[in-house]
Computed example of a mutant assay.
Amino acid sequence: MFTERVQSTRAEQKRRTTARITEAAARLFQEHGFHGTTVRQIAAEAGVSVGAVMAAGDKESLLSLVYDQAIAARIPAPPTVESATSAVDYLSRYFDPFIDLFTENEELARAYFRALTRGRPANAALGGLRTLTESNLTTAMVNAGIPHARAGLGAQVMFAGYLGELMLLAAGSTDPEQTADRIRSTAEFITAQGRN
């Protein structure tokens, strides 16, 4: 019983420390950029040791965590069957908050995508985001009358298309308006195919 309480207290303390580190990293990345921020600065800002920061993750992992948390906080709930929101509108607008996030700081967006393309295990939060996003998109399409199997496939295509569009946006190959237009075109195509 005593051991369980100590472990619970340690786990809670670790969670709070990681949250402080992540918040400090987010502030410093915004203020100084990814390359202008050091692990020592993050430790000083969070009031912890460099070792504590490294236990939470290296700089790249912390950036991924910052972005993953920011993205998760912006995920819109799927519309209900009674909602006036069409599947096309929901699917095309679903990603707007994420596009806004990526255009807020292009240097950080590029660094985040470099971290994603390395495919490190620390980026496992992307898998959780994919699962949640595909679930929400599938629900929206099913609520619009698209059979579940087709809706699931459509959600997979939407998520893959979204990642591709964000990579183009982060690389400076497109602008937010073009990105939103292409995502809407993809949503229109997917919902039309889902009903056939």
Results as ranks from 00 to 15, higher is better:
84 A>W: 05
192 A>Q: 10
26 A>R: 14
19 A>S: 14
172 G>T: 06
116 L>W: 10
45 E>R: 05
93 R>I: 00
64 S>F: 05
103 T>E: 11
163 L>R: 10
38 T>W: 03
94 Y>E: 11
152 G>Q: 15
17 T>A: 09
122 A>L: 03
27 R>I: 07
160 A>Y: 09
194 G>R: 04
139 T>R: 13
65 L>V: 07
126 L>T: 13
137 L>W: 09
64 S>N: 15
92 S>C: 06
93 R>T: 15
11 A>Q: 12
87 A>N: 02
21 I>N: 03
160 A>C: 08
112 Y>V: 05
53 V>H: 06
158 M>N: 05
21 I>H: 02
150 R>Y: 06
179 T>K: 02
50 V>G: 01
182 R>Y: 12
116 L>P: 03
103 T>L: 01
135 S>Q: 15
41 Q>H: 04
2 F>N: 10
125 A>E: 13
163 L>S: 02
94 Y>A: 13
55 A>Q: 14
181 D>C: 01
194 G>E: 07
86 S>H: 09
9 T>W: 13
111 A>C: 02
81 V>W: 07
156 Q>G: 15
52 A>K: 13
98 F>T: 15
54 M>D: 10
124 A>E: 09
127 G>Y: 07
10 R>W: 00
50 V>R: 15
94 Y>T: 13
12 E>I: 08
180 A>Y: 00
107 E>G: 04
74 R>Q: 14
189 F>K: 14
52 A>I: 08
10 R>A: 07
53 V>L: 05
6 V>A: 11
78 P>S: 09
190 I>A: 02
133 T>E: 04
99 I>G: 04
112 Y>G: 06
187 A>H: 06
43 A>W: 09
18 T>S: 09
148 H>V: 15
149 A>G: 06
110 R>F: 05
39 V>D: 00
77 A>F: 02
159 F>N: 11
111 A>M: 01
108 L>R: 06
152 G>F: 09
87 A>K: 01
22 T>Y: 03
25 A>E: 01
51 G>E: 12
78 P>H: 10
138 T>C: 01
158 M>D: 07
49 S>V: 10
2 F>P: 02
48 V>T: 15
148 H>S: 14
88 V>M: 08
126 L>K: 05
71 I>K: 07
63 L>N: 04
178 Q>G: 12
106 E>A: 15
97 P>K: 08
53 V>A: 06
139 T>D: 07
122 A>I: 05
67 Y>P: 00
4 E>I: 08
53 V>E: 02
7 Q>Y: 09
108 L>P: 02
31 E>K: 13
28 L>D: 00
188 E>W: 04
181 D>P: 00
117 T>Y: 06
76 P>Q: 02
